[in-house]
Design a protein around this nucleic acid. Structure first.
Length: 477
RNA sequence: GGCGGCAUGGCCAAGUGGUAAGGCAGAGGAUUGCAAAUCCUUUACCCCCAGUUCGAAUCUGGGUGCCGCCUCCA
């Protein structure tokens, strides 16, 4: 059983073979920290978190590096708008990023380099490219010469000749005029008045976006890495350029496997800042959608496919998560599982691994989880409602093993039990008092009053469950 | 225009040659003063056309529709 991944570079599903047995080096393109992360980022980073967790679960020692792009026009613009500095904007959004990722139970990267702290490596790489004739400077800018690099376009399938024809009509701006080929891109941009800049052999300025990643990958993980990750929208030009820069400098392949995740769509269109159709991670979570619901929502689709974000689909995920969560809650209460896995459970575990090996088929993997969860959920709900027989059933070794396996596999997907949100400001005593009042109303056959109390509590997130024998229990939902 | 991808029940979605996983919604039943919640049961021939094959959602060819990239973007 080996992991197979869709490699954008070859456009094929390939068996994963690490450079060094048992070890995996991964570089994941991070965010440009000019604003809060939205659901597109969430989807991407959840997918890669699952890849990472699965590799670890499979026994690999994983080194995961994710960068912050903290030098960028958008950050500068934002700083100018609010009258602060590039550093202030970056710092604030990095803090937000860390917090948002933590809420989604995304493992922090092993190392998170920043462009501003990698300037030496960036300048060194540009110099190296210049020395090799792959770069040229023009009026304080330094460009990469795509025509000098055989293989440019191999990731995205571009054809330089063809594109030149197409671009012929749109060479308008000054910058375009300076380039030898329309696809040439800036490695270093000369400073403009009033902008943050850094010294360099080519004059004060700042690095281009693509070179930042090339430099950070090399500095953190070496010339060749196992896996490079990113959103499908980065294939061209970002990753294509990254490959060109790195491979022109080192003469070695930059990454063996290139994985790209599909976009999050809203009404059939890509969620993005520029279209203004985005929902930030924190806005969604703060609106009451649980982090695990969001995780489940994204993992129900294959990572490469577009994912349409709709209220209805999210609602479905929330209800689905409720069931899984109930089953996971039981895992903490059962007896210690025996180390021997019963045959049926061992088969489930194998099936889970087989689906994940198949290019991270989380949708199919979730089916295994739901099947494992089904009896546990039923039991958990019976216990919740005070069924003592159910409590006894939960202590069997068989169920303990099942609960334990569910917990383990859910963990591979980063799904973990969530405590019921403590919504509403009512204390337990206040709730009990309301229940007593409703009981009295019912006894007096004043059902409208009884229903009124129930509705009022429901509005505050308190759900009443009437049980046989006139007993009423409640849950915070 | 170029490159890449997708089209499966009311919604989401797996399945890549042997008669359609899973989740949500819906329906029926149990329970209830009525509900809610919960539990049990249950619901599809896979965009269209042609072809290959004993057999195709799955392969080939042709359509149609949709999306992404080609400018910053996860």
């Amino acid at each position: 059983m080996t992991l197979k991944l869709t490699n954008t570079l070859t456009r094929r599903v390939e068996e994963f073979q690490p450079i060094e047995p048992g070890k995996v080096s991964i570089y994941c393109c991070g965010v440009t920290v000019y604003d809060l992360c939205h659901l597109g980022h969430a989807r991407s980073y959840i997918a890669w978190d699952v890849l990472r967790r699965y590799l670890i679960w499979s026994g690999y020692a994983v080194t995961f590096v994710q960068n912050y792009t903290d030098i960028d026009d958008k950050i500068l613009n934002r700083a100018a708008e609010e009258g602060s500095s590039m550093e202030a904007v970056s710092e604030r959004n990095i803090d937000a990023f860390v917090a948002d990722m933590a809420r989604l139970n995304i493992l922090p990267a092993d190392r998170m380099p920043r462009a501003t702290r990698s300037l030496d490596a960036i300048r060194a790489l540009i110099s190296e490219l210049e020395a090799k004739g792959a770069a040229y400077s023009a009026d304080g800018d330094v460009y990469f010469a795509v025509m000098k690099h055989a293989g440019y376009g191999k990731l995205s399938g571009r054809d330089l000749e063809q594109q030149q024809d197409n671009a012929a009509g749109r060479v308008a701006s000054e910058e375009e005029a300076r380039k030898l080929h329309p696809f040439d891109f800036a490695l270093w941009k000369g400073t403009k008045p009033g902008e943050a800049s850094f010294p360099s052999p080519w004059g004060a300025g700042r690095p281009g976006w693509h070179i930042e990643c090339s430099a950070m990958v090399r500095e953190e993980l070496g010339d060749t890495i196992d896996i490079h990750l990113g959103g499908a929208d980065l294939v061209f030009p970002h990753h294509e350029n990254e490959i060109a820069q790195s491979e022109a400098a080192t003469g070695k392949e930059l990454a063996h496997y290139w994985l790209h995740n599909g976009m999050v769509n809203v009404g059939g269109q890509k969620m993005s800042k520029s279209l203004g159709n985005f929902t930030t991670i924190r806005a969604l979570l703060d609106s009451g959608v649980s982090p695990m619901t969001l995780r489940l929502f994204t993992l129900q689709a294959h990572y490469r496919k577009p994912l349409d974000f709709t209220a209805e689909a999210l609602e479905a995920a929330a209800t689905g998560w409720k069931g899984l969560n109930a089953a996971l809650g039981l895992a903490g209460e059962t007896a210690t599982a025996s180390t021997e896995l019963p045959p049926a459970l061992a088969a489930s575990r194998e099936r889970f691994a087989a689906t994940m090996d198949d290019d991270l088929n989380t949708s199919a993997a979730l089916a295994v989880l739901f099947e494992l969860a089904k009896p546990l959920r039923a039991l958990a709900n019976r216990i919740e409602r005070g069924d003592d027989a159910a409590r006894a059933e939960a202590t069997t070794a068989e169920l303990a093993s099942q609960a334990s396996l569910l917990q383990e596999l859910a963990g591979v997907l980063g799904l973990q039990h969530e405590q019921d949100a403590t919504a509403g400001g009512l204390s337990d005593a206040e709730i009990e008092a309301q229940i007593e009042a409703r009981k009295a109303a019912k006894a007096a056959k004043d059902f409208p009053a009884a229903d009124g109390i129930r509705e009022a509590l429901k509005a505050q997130g308190i759900e009443l469950i009437d049980k046989p024998g006139g007993i009423t229990e409640w849950l915070r939902s």
